[in-house]
């Protein structure tokens, strides 16, 4: 593997880490099986592409993308909570609808943004610094929040809903807020990837959930999720390792078309390893 490949992998891994945090929040803190990533991530990308092609500064596009994707998360939460539709189904329905919305917003299936500029340049280290700063600006406040009274309540919602209700905690409010945060992270990742590639395609979200899930599984397999700190580090570590493994597999001759099969196999392997470990060591 060349240095360039490793550096590119780290750059992509940092963006994948943002997605993985978005996947972890509902899965681990709210006990909410959320499949919205496949829709909220390209929505962020589509909004970013429109803003950039309209001449709006790319830095301004980022918060708008986060809000749009976050609102999609709120819709998923409301559909689940108010219409009593299974969380997975709500996510799938909204993601399917988002595809049409993205096409309608973009007016065509893809937009080239090579002339529009963006936050990123040719210096990978500079790009990585920008992504790291944006990632930290989301994760650090969230980590601080989790250590407050409200954060404790947020965690309780996913760990013991009955106890949370007994203590007067509003499951609905915390679920809606959690989904907003998670999906706004998808929006952030979508806008960053579009700016990095200077190109937006309506199909960029296909399979993104499984990449994030694989990253989360790998991260938790490496350092576990027994403590809050480990839970918060696992997505970043997992995404960086996963991206490197993927890069290594490609450099060893894996066809890009086999990548999704490879990712699915990694997820299954990690789950099987966890189950075997649990059986052997109780």
């Amino acid at each position: 593997m060349s240095v360039d490949l490793v550096m590119n992998g780290l750059q992509q891994g940092l963006i994948l880490a943002i997605i993985t945090y978005g996947i972890m929040i509902p899965f681990r803190f709210l006990d909410f099986t959320d499949l919205t990533a496949d829709g909220a991530y390209p929505l962020g990308g589509a909004v970013c592409a429109i803003f950039m092609s309209s001449g709006i500064h790319p830095a301004l596009a980022i918060p708008c993308c986060m809000i749009c994707s976050g609102c999609m998360g709120v819709c998923v939460a409301l559909i689940h909570l108010k219409l009593r539709i299974n969380s997975m189904l709500a996510g799938i329905i909204l993601s399917t609808m988002a595809y049409s919305v993205n096409l309608r917003l973009m007016g065509r299936p893809n937009i080239a943004l090579f002339e529009c500029g963006g936050l990123f340049g040719v210096n990978i280290l500079g790009n990585m610094t920008i992504i790291c700063l944006l990632l930290a600006s989301c994760v650090v406040p969230f980590a601080i929040f989790l250590r407050t009274d409200f954060g404790l309540r947020f965690r309780a919602v996913g760990l013991n809903q009955n106890l949370a209700k007994q203590r007067g905690i509003s499951i609905d409010k915390y679920t809606i807020a959690g989904l907003f945060v998670a999906c706004s992270l998808f929006g952030l990742a979508g806008s960053l990837i579009v700016q990095l590639q200077s190109y937006m395609d309506v199909g960029i979200g296909v399979g993104i959930l499984i990449h994030g899930l694989a990253s989360l599984m790998i991260g938790e397999a490496i350092i576990g999720n027994a403590t809050l700190n480990r839970q918060l580090v696992a997505p970043l570590l997992g995404a960086l390792v996963y991206q490197q493994v993927q890069g290594a597999a490609l450099s060893l001759g894996l066809a890009p078309s086999d990548l999704k099969f490879f990712t699915g196999a990694i997820v299954l392997l990690v789950i099987a390893m966890k189950r075997t470990e649990a059986k052997m060591f109780g």
Partner: peptide, 23 residues
């Protein structure tokens, strides 16, 4: 909540008016 610490469990139950400050 077995996965939370004893402090977290008791603080969760004892706080009637939560604040944005460390538990």
């Amino acid at each position: 909540i077995p996965s939370m610490t004893m402090l977290e469990n008791i603080a969760l139950s004892g706080v009637k008016n939560p604040r944005f400050s460390f538990y």
